[in-house]
């Protein structure tokens, strides 16, 4: 299904899994960061996991940018707050 038929469960990969999130946020200790990057240079699976997590976050942020407060909901909100006179 993915072109790769082995599960992503080697001991090393599992150890690094808990650090991936902090790595993505740039909050990982520099020495651990270097270690993880060295591991990823030789581990396609971990590289894919990191890249697809980053892409996942970007997609949600992109989707958020498209979200709107429906005009009717906005009108009802201003009305409930007795702010009708400020509705443009």
């Amino acid at each position: 299904m993915t072109g790769q038929d082995h599960p992503h469960n080697s001991y090393d990969c599992q150890q690094y899994l808990s650090e991936i999130s902090e790595y993505i946020d740039g909050e990982l200790d520099p020495s651990l960061c270097k270690e993880l990057e060295e591991h990823m240079a030789g581990c396609t699976n971990c590289k894919v996991v990191v890249n697809t997590i980053k892409r996942t976050i970007e997609l949600y942020q992109e989707d958020e940018g498209e979200q709107q407060l429906p005009p009717e909901a906005r009108r009802r909100l201003f009305s409930r707050l007795s702010l009708d006179d400020f509705l443009k």
Partner: peptide
């Protein structure tokens, strides 16, 4: 552990979203 390892980052943006 992550199971699904498809590298879908390569899907072009217009098709992705």
């Amino acid at each position: 552990s992550p199971h699904e390892l498809a590298d879908w980052c390569c899907i072009p943006e217009p098709e992705l979203m």
